[in-house]
Design a protein around this nucleic acid. Structure first.
Lengths: 214, 214
DNA sequence: GTCTATAATCTGATAGAC
DNA sequence: GTCTATCAGATTATAGAC
């Protein structure tokens, strides 16, 4: 009754067929990113998408049931990219706590500003009917958890402290994207912002530095 | 040759006619706000707009050349509302500098979170082809200037300091709107955020407070 | 100034042949 | 799985009657 025993005449084994299918889906999502970067997040049209992957728009529905499902795949891919992007940072964490925090901030800022449309999809709610699937939402939650873990390494575990931290980070990012795209006006302020925030949420990182070293 | 001397038969004087026209335009813009709050910023349809003001959608083109022109009027009105909203604050400025700064922050936060769609139109770039007209842009600039003036009252004049201030404010606001709409999760952090920011950009507000009062 | 009528185009999505 | 054909609807915008 399952497809493996049923399709004995097929020249392509099911796992290969599934692999090809996944390849095509990935190709469609990649084309989605290209289009969205060119025309804005809301400017994604199934016809353009089809043209880009060499298919009629209607054929895409063999791979994705709706346009929102494509957005969802992009959403998930975006958060996976974030995890991959910041994952390496967790390894070499024998740096000074302050430098570590600065590094985290720069990484986040870099990731967001390097692709404003992705930022819009991942961190802002701008597509009318789009709600991430449970699966995608789980991936997104993982990012926040890993961020919390990073802060916990600096002995920052208060939820309010983390909220202040994220507000500061997204504030810089948002201003950079909205008011000086491509520039460095807010990027230059990251270290100052990190310092002042840590002084508020993690004063223990500062108070003993003088007595210990001299 | 001008219309005043020419239209002697008209029962409505030109200035009254112009006034009525302005009234209708204002009515259309008001309907635009209602629709946008109900359907999202991107969900503004000319049909709905016409229905709301008791006109066919096409008749709106007698008042606005395009949909973007309506967005532009809303954009301008939004910034004007902000000026009106914060204008009163400038008057009674014999409060403590720190309280004054906190007050400014709360005002901004309140204005933004009380109408998220307006915030989206005014402070984020989310409508595909929309670029504010020169006139609207001038109104928007005025807001930033009046903000700069408020900060100058606290002896904060460094441009980088103002950028840190706005990043902090928009960060709190953005997080509140995106991640806890209707709640107070980031609103509760305003005073802490203001304090830590001022400690960084305006240390002179803190250093003498102990010696002077005792 | 507002209407009807209509243009021309784009939208996401479906049915069914091959 | 990809195609053709097509749907049902929305979009902005124009022309011309009243």
């Amino acid at each position: 009754m399952n497809s493996q025993t049923e399709n004995t005449r097929s020249p392509v084994r099911p796992d290969r067929r599934a692999a090809r299918r996944q390849e095509t889906k990935a190709e469609i999502v990649a084309a989605g990113w290209e289009l969205v970067r060119a025309n804005g997040l809301a400017g994604l049209a199934m016809r353009d998408l089809g043209e880009r992957v060499g298919m009629k728009a209607q054929s895409i529905y063999s791979y994705f049931a709706s346009k929102h499902e494509i957005y969802d795949a992009m959403f998930q891919e975006g958060y996976a990219a974030f995890t991959a992007f910041t994952g390496g940072l967790l390894e070499n964490s024998n740096a000074e706590p302050l430098d570590q925090a600065r590094s985290m901030a720069h990484q986040f800022f870099q990731f967001c500003t390097s692709d404003p449309v992705r930022y819009q999809l991942l961190f802002q709610r701008t597509i009318p009917g789009f709600v991430p699937s449970d699966e995608s939402f789980a991936v997104a939650l993982g990012v926040y958890e890993s961020m919390a873990t990073q802060l916990a390494d600096l002995d920052i575990s208060d939820p309010a402290a983390m909220d202040l931290w994220t507000a500061m980070l997204t504030g810089l990012t948002d201003q950079q994207i909205s008011n000086d795209p491509g520039g460095q006006r807010w990027e230059r302020l990251i270290d100052r912002a990190v310092d002042m925030t840590l002084r508020e949420i993690a004063p223990h990182l500062f108070e003993t530095s003088k007595g210990r070293n001299s």
